[in-house]
């Protein structure tokens, strides 16, 4: 089953594929791009507090809820 969620609503251990970056702020967009957070990429949520930590490939990125809210994922089960 596929479900579209925003990254700040995910909990630790979940995996998903990025489908959209919903921000109009170019600086934020470029930062996300530089970390490899681009549509089509699969990420895994590692921690939700104090900020969200996701694993992209073999690297980890910490980001605050308000940034995570801009990232839309399709949740992948299992």
């Amino acid at each position: 089953m596929q479900k579209i969620v925003s990254l700040d609503g995910c909990s630790a251990g979940e995996t998903g594929k990025i489908v959209a970056l919903a921000t109009g702020n170019y600086t934020i967009l470029r930062k996300l791009l530089s970390m490899g957070l681009v549509p089509g990429v699969q990420i895994r949520v590692i921690r939700c507090r104090p900020s969200i930590v996701v694993q992209v490939g073999h690297s980890k990125v910490a980001l605050e809820e308000c940034l995570a809210a801009q990232i839309t994922l399709v949740r992948i089960d299992g």
Binding site: M35, S51, S59, V61, A62, L63, E64, L67
Partner: peptide, 9 residues
């Protein structure tokens, strides 16, 4: 500014 950072190994 919102917090955003790579956590290197």
């Amino acid at each position: 500014a919102a917090f955003f950072m790579e956590l290197p190994p």
